[in-house]
Amino acid sequence: ERLAYIADHLGFSWTELARELDFTEEQIHQIRIENPNSLQDQSHALLKYWLERDGKHATDTNLVECLTKINRMDIVHLME
């Protein structure tokens, strides 16, 4: 799945992406607590919560915009 692929590449950027996707610091902290050992797991959790929260509004376009804002064009190019 594309989101899994994106999550695998996010690394430390997942928190920046979370902020761009309008997650609160508290929500970010919660994701860290729930997935303490792996940045990859934290990234996967973030994208899963985003899909659950935004439903049909959780679009590739939205994700590309946010990834561009945090200067992760490498991931944007991987999505093309």
Rank of each mutant, 00 (worst) to 15 (best):
Arg2Pro: 02
Phe12His: 06
Leu3Cys: 07
Leu39Cys: 11
Ala58Asp: 05
His44Gln: 09
Lys56Leu: 10
Arg32Cys: 08
Arg72Leu: 04
Leu17Tyr: 02
Leu67Pro: 00
Thr24Cys: 04
Gly55His: 10
Ile6Pro: 02
Tyr49Ser: 12
Asp41Arg: 09
Leu67Met: 03
Lys48His: 12
Gln30Arg: 12
Leu63Met: 13
Ala4His: 13
Val76Ile: 14
Thr68Ile: 06
Leu63Trp: 04
Asp22Glu: 04
Asp41His: 06
Val76Arg: 04
Ala45Arg: 12
Asp74Pro: 02
Asn37Phe: 12
Asp74Gln: 02
Tyr49Val: 15
Ile70Lys: 01
Thr24Lys: 15
Ile31Val: 09
Gln40Leu: 05
Asn71Met: 05
Ala18Leu: 00
Glu52Gln: 15
Arg19His: 14
Asn37Thr: 07
His77Asn: 08
Ile28Pro: 00
Lys48Ile: 05
Leu47Arg: 01
Gln27Thr: 15
Gln27Ile: 10
Leu10Cys: 04
Leu39Gln: 06
Trp50Tyr: 05
Cys66Trp: 09
Asn37Cys: 09
Leu21Trp: 07
Asp8Asn: 03
Asn35His: 06
Asp60Pro: 08
Val76Cys: 11
Lys48Ser: 07
Lys69Val: 11
Glu26Met: 10
Ile75Ala: 13
Ile28Thr: 07
Asp22Gly: 08
Ile33Met: 13
Ala58Cys: 11
Arg19Ser: 07
Glu65Val: 07
Glu52Trp: 10
Leu17Arg: 00
His29Met: 05
Pro36Ala: 04
Gln27Gly: 05
Ile70Pro: 00
Ile70His: 02
Gln30Glu: 12
Ile28Gly: 01
Asp60Lys: 07
Glu16His: 14
Glu25Gln: 12
Asn71Lys: 08
Glu16Asn: 13
Leu67Thr: 00
Arg2Trp: 14
Asn35Pro: 01
Arg32Val: 12
Asp41Ala: 12
Leu51Phe: 14
Leu21Thr: 02
Asn71Trp: 02
Met79Ile: 03
Leu63Phe: 05
Gly55Ser: 10
Gly11Phe: 10
Thr61Asp: 11
His57Asp: 09
His57Cys: 09
Glu52Ile: 10
Phe12Val: 10
Ser43Arg: 01
Met79Leu: 14
Arg53Cys: 07
Ala58Pro: 13
Ser13Phe: 10
Ala58Phe: 09
Thr68Gln: 06
Ser38Asn: 09
His29Glu: 10
Tyr5Pro: 11
Arg32Ile: 02
Arg53Leu: 03
Lys48Leu: 13
His44Pro: 00
Gln27Ala: 06
Gln30Leu: 09
Ile70Met: 12
Leu47Ser: 02
Leu67His: 00
Trp14Thr: 02
Leu21Ala: 07
Leu10Tyr: 02
Ala45Asn: 14
Leu46Cys: 15
Cys66Arg: 12
Gly55Leu: 11
Ile75Glu: 11
His9Arg: 11
Tyr5Leu: 15
Ala7Met: 10
His9Leu: 11
Leu21Met: 06
Thr61Cys: 04
Leu47His: 01
Leu47Ile: 09
Ser13Val: 04
Leu39Tyr: 15
Leu63Cys: 10
Ile31Leu: 09
Ala4Phe: 15
Phe23Ala: 04
Ile70Val: 10
Gln27Tyr: 03
Ala4Pro: 08
Leu39Asp: 11
Asp54Thr: 13
Asp60His: 03
Cys66His: 13
Arg32Ala: 07
Leu67Ser: 01
Asn71Ile: 00
Leu21Pro: 00
Gly11Tyr: 06
His29Pro: 00
Lys56Ile: 07
Ala7Gln: 07
Ile28Trp: 01
Asn62Val: 14
Ser38Gln: 06
Tyr5His: 13
Glu20Asp: 13
Asn62Asp: 14
Ala7Arg: 15
Thr61Leu: 15
Arg53Val: 08
Asp41Pro: 03
Asp54Glu: 11
Arg32Met: 09
Leu3Thr: 11
Pro36Thr: 09
Thr68Ala: 09
Ile75Ser: 01
Lys69Leu: 09
Asp8Gln: 15
Leu47Asn: 01
Ala7Thr: 14
Phe23Gly: 00
Glu65Ile: 15
Glu20Ser: 08
Tyr5Gly: 03
Phe12Gln: 06
Trp50Ile: 10
Phe12Ala: 14
Ile75Gly: 03
Leu10Gly: 01
Tyr49Lys: 09
Glu65Leu: 08
Val64Gly: 06
Leu63Thr: 02
Ile70Trp: 01
Asp54Met: 12
Asp60Asn: 02
Tyr49Thr: 15
Asn35Phe: 07
Leu39Phe: 12
Ala18Arg: 00
Leu21Val: 04
Asn62Leu: 12
Ala7Ser: 14
Asn62Tyr: 05
Met79Lys: 03
Thr61Lys: 03
Glu34Cys: 02
Glu65Arg: 12
Leu3Ala: 05
Gly11Asn: 15
Gln40Arg: 08
Gly55Thr: 11
Ile28Phe: 01
Ile28Ser: 04
Glu16Phe: 07
Lys48Trp: 05
Asn62Ala: 12
Leu46Arg: 00
Arg72Asn: 03
Ser13Arg: 08
Arg32Lys: 15
Cys66Ala: 12
Gln42His: 00
Ser38Thr: 10
Lys69Asp: 07
Tyr49Cys: 14
Thr59Asn: 09
Leu63Pro: 01
Ile33His: 07
Arg53Lys: 11
Leu10Ile: 10
Leu47Gly: 02
Cys66Val: 14
Asp60Gly: 06
His57Glu: 15
Thr61Ala: 07
Leu47Trp: 03
Leu63Gln: 00
Met73Ser: 15
Ala58Trp: 05
Thr15Cys: 09
Arg32Phe: 07
Glu25Asp: 13
Ala18Pro: 00
Ile75Leu: 06
His29Asp: 08
Thr59Tyr: 15
Tyr5Asn: 15
Ala4Glu: 12
His29Lys: 12
Ala58Val: 11
Gln42Ile: 02
Asp41Cys: 06
Leu46Met: 15
Tyr49Leu: 13
Leu63Val: 07
His44Arg: 04
Arg32Ser: 09
Cys66Thr: 08
Gly11His: 06
Asp74Ala: 01
Asp8Val: 03
Thr15Val: 12
Gln42Ser: 15
Asn37Gln: 08
Leu17Trp: 01
Val76Asp: 04
Val64Tyr: 10
